[in-house]
Structures are given as C-alpha cells and as structure tokens.
Amino acid sequence: MSDTTTSTAESAGKDASPVRPPLISPSRIWSLATVTFTQLLRMKVLYFMLIFGLIVAVIFNFNPSGQTVAQQLKSTKDVSFAVMNVFSMLFAIASTAILIPKDLEDRTLYTILSKPVPRLDYLLGRLMGVLMVVGACLIIMYAFLALVLFVQEQILVSAELSRLREQPQMDSETLLNMENDMRKQGLHWPLLYAPLAIFLKACVVAAVTLFLSTFASSTLFTIIVSAMLFLIGHFHKSTYEVLMEDTHANAVVALLGKLVVLAVPNFALFNVVDGIAAAEPVDPMLMGQLFLVTAVYTVLYLLVALIVFMDKEF
C-alpha cells in the first residue's frame, strides 16, 4: 500500500508539460495487437482448424471416377484454398466487427482511450490483432494442406507411373513427360503465393470492416454491410462494364456506378488464388504489385476510419 506513495509523489512534482506520446508507437500497437490476438484465440477460433482438417481429409480420400491424377491433386488444392478463403473472409469480417462494440460494451474502450493512446494506435492495434490471427490460421491450414498434398502426390504419382510402365511401347521420355504433367499439380514453392493472396484480401476486408464499425450502430449492421461490399467488390467492375455496354445508361446511373467502382475495393484482383492453384507460373513482380494495391486499400480505409473515429464520443 505504502509503495505507491513515493512514486506518485515524484511525478506530482513534475511540470505541467508532459512528453507528447508519439502518434504511432509500435510497442503500444503491438500490445493492443497481442491482446486482440489472445482475446480472439480464447474465443476458440482454432476449432475451425479441425473442421478444415476434416474437409481436407475427406477430399484426400475422395476419388470420383474419371479424375486424372493431376485433377485429383488440383481438387485438393482448390477445395482447401476455397475453405481457407471462406474462413479468412468470415473471420476478418466477424471479428473486426465485434471488437469495437465489445470494447464499448465492456467499458474497456474507456480505460484504453483514457490512457495516452492515440486513436490511430487503437485502430491499428485492433486491425493488426485480427490479421495476426488470420495469418496464424492460414499458416496452420497451409502447412496441413502442404503435408496432405505431398503425401497424395507421392502415392498417386507412383501408382500411376507403375501402371504406365506396363503399357506397351512406353518410352522413358514420354513417361517423364507424363510424370512432370502430374507433378505440376503437386506441391511447389509458388503455391505459397495462394495463402499470401488470401491474406492480402483479408487485410483489405478487415480494413473495410473496421471503417464500417467506427460508425455502425450495431455489429449485425457492420457484418451485413461488409459482406455486401465484399460481394459488390467482386463484380462491380464487370457489372459496370456490362451496364455501360448494354444500356444507354442514363447519366445518374453511370455516375453512381462509377462512384461505386471508385469507392469499393476491387476484390476480384485477389482471385489469383485460382490461377496459382492451377499451377500457372507466378510473376513475383505482380505479387509485389498486389501487395502494393493491398497497402493502398488498407491505408485508405484506415484513414477514413480514423476520420470517423478521431473525435467520436463515447
């Protein structure tokens, strides 16, 4: 009890011009992010990993007639990436939408914001925490997928090769070509770009949701509107183009369409996952540009989130 005495007395003597906290403090953001991370993990999101494992295991044992080895391998990748995609997007939207209202409800927001925490730091910390969980889950899911794909590749390819070797007039060159064709759909390093693209998409989705949750009246509103923007962001561009070609769209519709295209992120860009899963060659430069686009979106939505949140009253 008496220990506080000395310390508070010390500070009481200080002058009334304290050090201004830096606008962005990595350690403060980090501690907010880790608390968010722990908070979300304790919500048992990792159980989802078990479901993912189950789905991949089912795919692994699923061999409909007429599927070639390459197709079977590709199916494993397609389904796994689709599940990873769905999980990441749902998680990014739901958890981001829940965080601020929950903090407000529990009054933890009061205790946090009454500390010398700039509101930008709070937003950044929250966003980062959510993305850390998404990232960790993607790593776990990808590791599992990689393991399954590797085992599947070894089993299926060797079985197929021994079948092919018994074919009459099979020469080694043809055999090698066929093996290469099959292995093309197996486990390769460039496949890692797929979870990366999913992660980048989750970043943008989370940033958009964070923006919505700074002014939304309820969590449900945030989740529904985020999901809508997510879908709109996938096809607004092509829809807009069709609209412009097909109809003599009047000026108002055209303008509105243009505004939507400008304001809502083009989520379709991140569907490169399909191409990556199909073993199309990946240009790292393009992935770099995708990263850049993600950064622009995230900063943009954080900025508008901050504008709303900056002098929001609680």
Binding site: L259, V261, L262, A263, N266, A268, L269, N271, V272, D274, G275, I276, A278, E280, P281, V282, D283, L286, Q289, L290, L292, V293, V296, Y297, L300, L303, V304, I307
Partner: peptide
Amino acid sequence: ILMAGGLLRSPLENRLETRLVETHLL
C-alpha cells in the same frame, strides 16, 4: 477521400489486372 483514392489507385490497379489476366493468374 475514398473517391480520390479510387482515382489514384485505379490506373495501377487496372494495369495489374490486365497483367494478371494476361499471365492467366486471373
């Protein structure tokens, strides 16, 4: 801000989209 951001990013984004389609990733 969202509009200005959209105007700024769309050239980069459109170029990227074209390239991604060309390389069959998208």
